[in-house]
Design a protein around this nucleic acid. Structure first.
Length: 587
RNA sequence: CGGGGCGUAGCGCAGCUUGGUAGCGCGCCUGCUUUGGGAGCAGGAUGUCGUAGGUUCAAAUCCUAUCGCCCCGACCA
């Protein structure tokens, strides 16, 4: 456990306010922490867990959180958005009106007040802001307008995990814009997109904006901002040649026209016990790309047969779009068999005994001499060919892209897949909420017009964890300069034994504070090794050591957190190093 | 929600199979020594063994229930 003295001084006053900052570091990694960010934030004394998915921000962690908030706030203000603060507790009526009281499911934490009225803890604030807008905005002259807040949200996650990364309670910046028309929304959308680019750049993060799916809610455009990290929960796709990037739900790749092979004679073969594509390929001695597999899904209420090349993966989101329904799910084995009359594992598109809609992925139509199920137990077809043996069904993009696929935007590039942590999302809501909640204003001709909306989120607390995921080493955190709880750490070695060291460290601290740096002075009566280990763990970008040896040479000992060597510098050089910005950004 | 695992001192863990009244390391407190990469010696404090029942002369240990936490899964026919 560490108490470091944090001194704030006032230039010429004798009065000096000294306070102490509580930094309870842990030598050992708590068993509950899986992710590096979770481990290091616990060990560095930044956060403590209260219950599953609920964390207390300790003094050091709160300083980081405030840094993130400040940057986000500055960029939002700069973009013209106006800050408000809406309640966490929200009345059920609003959610019933938007239809989400039923739709949201158990993630929405519901509660009753003493009068037995229903409320919920806000997982998001579309309903509240919509209610505000319809009460207060009456004329086209008041538009466009963009409101934002930095507020605690609550989502009762199925499985909270990874510390701050997927908590139940978390802090989010959310913004909602209102417009007369889509053109106006498009302008604000771009403004927000640019603001996010600046925000995440200032936060010192290696990030990528990717095209995203709009989901059931519709709307035209949507981008997610991902921090690149191996531990990311999301797969993001990007081109190695142009700036195309999309998430896995959205990414597409053109289906190359494959050379048509000379057709072979079709045949039914016995394939007892086959269940999977891999088994089918092995038994028949073909590659899985020569199989057209049949996947039964339920779209809305209707069973649908989807065809994919054996080595491709179905993307349910794309299927939902192609079938023009909100949601597509895998059929149960019972549903699949009753819809086709064929046993699971042997279903195929040829000679169907039932009327069922069939939709193929583009790539499945490029295969010749392929194998499929024969709609009969233990039997498959081989050497089938489209047109000759069965007619071509409708086709759509149904598959997940894979690394190495060609880019849809440029001819030269190929797609790669990386992991990302979603820290931001900009989204065109369109008129979904404004219609449901009747947000109308009078237009220039005096007629009621339904407004168009956009919404824009940043996971503020998640950014803290994402930053650690991207910036750490075996000794601890390495904060980007813009997020570090302090700019500089001063380590006073053997300050008790050498009063001149204590005095010099204190004086240096004061001068650096006056120069505009925030400084953490470690004047604990600890061994140097303990002090260094603490400093490394909590990850301040700059460290200055004050010791009797160093004083004797009339220099300071400087080391960047990322560096492995000390540098002896005079004070002017030290100031230059601190002002040079963060070594974190050096390659 | 399904599967698996774990709850013993502030943290990390042993003890449980084969019941006999709780231990190790780190941390914490005191003293001395030490002082450039998580010190050494000596002394000390801290547990209703997650909770509630049950079995037994006796339960951390066996049984039942319950609460909490962690991990995996929840799309490939």
């Amino acid at each position: 456990m560490a108490f470091l003295t944090l001194c704030a001084t006032f230039s010429f006053e004798i009065f000096m306010r000294a306070s102490q900052i509580f930094i309870p570091t842990l030598k050992e990694t708590p068993a509950e922490a899986e992710l590096v960010s979770h481990q290091l934030l616990l060990r560095g004394g930044f956060i403590r867990r209260l219950a599953s998915g609920l964390y207390t921000w300790m003094p050091l962690g709160l300083r980081v959180l405030r840094k993130v908030e400040r940057i986000v706030r500055e960029e939002m203000d700069r973009s013209g958005a106006q800050e408000v603060l809406m309640p966490v507790v929200q009345p059920a009526e609003l959610w019933q009106e938007s239809g989400r009281w039923e739709k949201y499911g158990p993630e929405l934490l519901r509660l009753k007040d003493r009068h037995q009225r229903d409320f919920c803890l806000g997982p998001t604030h579309e309903e509240v802001i919509s209610d505000l807008a319809r009460r207060e905005i009456h004329s086209y002259k008041q538009l466009p307008v963009n409101f934002y807040q930095i507020q605690t949200k609550f989502r009762d996650e199925i499985r909270p995990r990874f510390g701050l990364m997927r908590g139940r309670e978390f802090i989010m910046k959310d913004a909602y814009s209102f417009h007369m028309d889509h053109a106006s929304l498009e302008i604000t959308y771009q403004t927000m997109y640019d603001a996010y680019q600046r925000t995440f750049t200032r936060l010192g993060l290696d990030f990528r904006a990717v095209e995203a799916d709009n989901g059931a809610i519709g709307g035209k455009r949507s981008h997610e901002f991902h921090v690149l990290a191996d531990s990311g929960e999301d797969a993001i796709v990007s081109c190695d040649h142009c700036d195309y990037a999309a998430n896995m739900e959205k990414a597409s790749s053109p289906a190359k026209v494959a050379p048509v092979e000379a057709p072979l004679e079709a045949a039914r073969v016995q394939t007892p016990g086959i269940r999977t594509v891999a088994e089918q390929a092995a038994m028949l001695g073909i590659s899985s790309s020569q199989i057209v597999k049949t996947v039964l899904v339920v779209a809305g209420e209707q069973p649908v047969m989807l065809l994919l090349r054996g080595d491709d993966e179905l993307n349910l989101i794309k299927a939902a779009h192609a079938l023009e329904v909100d949601e597509v799910r895998m059929a149960t084995p019972e549903e699949a068999e009753s819809a086709t009359g064929a046993p699971l594992g042997f279903i195929g598109p040829k000679d169907l005994s039932t009327a069922i809609r069939v939709l193929a992925d583009h790539r499945a139509l490029n295969v010749s001499n392929f194998s499929t199920g024969a709609n009969e137990m233990d039997t498959h077809w081989v050497n089938l060919n489209w047109d000759r043996d069965l007619s071509r069904p409708d086709s759509a993009d149904l598959r997940n892209v894979r690394a190495g696929d060609p880019c849809p935007h440029c001819s030269a590039g190929t797609l790669g897949i990386r992991r990302g942590i979603e820290v931001g999302h900009v989204f065109q809501l369109g008129q979904v909420y404004s219609e449901r909640m009747k947000i109308t204003v009078l237009d220039e001709s005096g007629r009621d017009a339904t407004v168009t909306m956009g919404c824009y989120g940043i996971g503020v607390s998640r950014v803290v964890a994402a930053a650690v995921e991207q910036h750490f080493d075996e000794r601890g955190i390495i904060w980007p300069a813009s997020l570090s709880p302090f700019d500089v750490g001063i380590v006073a070695i053997n300050a008790r034994k050498f009063p001149e060291v204590a005095a010099a460290a204190q004086a240096l601290h004061d001068r650096l504070e006056q120069a505009g740096f925030s400084v953490l002075l470690d004047d604990r009566d600890e061994r140097p090794g303990v002090q260094f280990a603490t400093m490394d763990l909590i990850g301040l970008p700059h460290r200055v050591v004050v010791s009797d040896k160093v004083l004797a040479q009339n220099v300071w000992e400087y080391r960047a957190r990322r560096a492995s060597e000390n540098t002896l510098v005079n004070e002017a050089e030290l100031m230059d190093l601190l002002n040079a910005g963060s070594p974190v950004h050096q390659p």
